[in-house]
Design a protein around this nucleic acid. Structure first.
Lengths: 143, 143
DNA sequence: TTTTAATCAGACAAAAATATCTGATTTTTT
DNA sequence: AAAAAATCAGATATTTTTGTCTGATTAAAA
């Protein structure tokens, strides 16, 4: 079990935080990201490709090619990455797996979980990723 | 993606909440639970078997057999069911998937996520499942 | 005592998630 | 012009999760 996001999404979050922590406009290859973050190389490529398709990052082909953010880190929030990869469905589904969980047909923990879920959403959308630069660099330096 | 727990765990939570909402000591079959909760029949059996092994419920074999709680609902918390099925690892893992996430090597959202996680844990262990009886009955009546 | 209806164990199957491979294309460097 | 190093697309493989099947056993009811 992952905690909340799929592996793909976890890796995507890590990769974009990593890119945001680099010098601006620095292009880095899938291999570099794979090495720095210990993500399987080919899987890294796939995820970066899909993030390119979603418009969060952009790619440069050929020798000296690679990836970089397509949007300034001051305009990207963690939730944007989650949305691009896993979607936001989990923020709208019942934690106990009941169908039609809603204020009208609440599950036993509907209210309590709803509050937690909203806080999680807020946390992921409260700050843009440029704010995480230093923390990301510290974290990656020990990986 | 499930929200937080595996399907197995979601079904297990539903099943035990259901049993706790029945008359005390009432034995119900896997088939009944499967029908009431719309859980695949054979999968229901498997999950109930594993919950039996973990000691939360007990089984009676043969005709008129089935399952019932092995512990009084006033002594079972949601987190006990989660622990029996999914384990508690997700409450100790990094939400961004970084390794060695700890106060010494925190991920970018370590503090914030830690607080949310603790609240989720508290929510799941704050009340015993006898408290959910009425809400469960209401919910199941519309399934 | 036979039939019926249940658990149980273990194998099996299908689907989804995760990971890898292959080869084509692109672009810079030599 | 050729070599090198990258993305990219699509197929394939592996692993995990989810779900199903079969047959043995158990125990009550007919």
């Amino acid at each position: 079990m992952t905690v909340l996001f799929s592996k793909k999404c976890e890796y995507g979050l890590q990769a974009i935080l990593f890119m945001a922590a680099l010098e601006e406009d620095r292009i880095c290859s899938a291999e570099e990201i794979s090495n720095k973050l210990n993500i399987p190389k080919e899987f890294t490529s796939k995820i970066l490709q899909s993030l390119t398709a979603s418009g969060l990052i952009e790619s440069k082909k050929g020798k000296t090619g690679g990836f970089r953010l397509a949007i300034h880190p001051s305009k990207i929030k963690l939730i944007d990455i989650v949305e691009a990869i896993d979607g936001l469905e989990s923020f709208n589904s019942c934690v106990l797996g009941f169908s039609n969980c809603s204020p009208k047909n609440p599950c036993p923990v509907h209210k309590e979980w709803g509050e937690l879920r909203n806080k999680a959403y807020e946390m992921l959308s409260s700050e843009t990723i440029d704010k995480f630069k230093e923390k990301t660099l510290n974290k990656i330096s020990v990986l």
